[in-house]
Computed example of a mutant assay.
Amino acid sequence: MTSELTPQEAARGALRAGLPLPDDRHEAVARTAAHIHSVISTLRELDFGETPPASSYRAGREDADATV
């Protein structure tokens, strides 16, 4: 398991990305990053099996006769 991003690390990362943060935003950005990381970690645990990637979906090409 990785350690959570500290407010100082969030500030440094934002600065490297060209997005300097005001001092009062460091903590909120670090908390938001931790939340996003936890959601992504949960998604990585899902077994999608034979599910095709989203890029293979074409809107409007469903069978109108298909039973649900």
Rank of each mutant, 00 (worst) to 15 (best):
I40V: 13
L15A: 14
G49Q: 03
P20F: 08
T67A: 12
E62S: 12
P53R: 00
H37E: 15
S56L: 08
T6D: 13
I36C: 11
R58V: 11
D24N: 15
G49A: 07
E27V: 04
H35T: 14
P20I: 08
S41E: 15
I40K: 10
R44T: 09
G60F: 01
R12I: 06
Y57I: 00
L15I: 05
E50T: 14
L19H: 07
S41W: 09
V68D: 13
G18H: 01
E9K: 10
A66N: 08
D24R: 09
A28Q: 14
L15V: 06
E45W: 05
P53N: 01
A28I: 06
L15W: 06
G13C: 01
I40E: 13
S3H: 07
Q8C: 04
H37T: 14
S56M: 08
E62A: 13
I40F: 09
R31F: 03
R44W: 09
R44V: 11
E45F: 05
D24T: 10
S38H: 13
V68S: 12
R31Y: 03
L43W: 10
T32E: 11
A17W: 05
E50W: 04
P22F: 07
T67F: 07
G13I: 03
V29A: 13
E9Y: 03
G13D: 02
P53S: 04
S41Y: 09
A34G: 15
R16T: 09
D47G: 14
P22T: 11
G60V: 01
A14S: 13
T2K: 09
R61N: 08
E4R: 11
R12C: 04
R44Y: 10
E27I: 01
L21E: 04
T51L: 14
I36H: 08
L5V: 15
A59N: 00
H26W: 05
R61L: 07
V29M: 10
E45G: 15
F48Q: 03
A64H: 11
I40C: 12
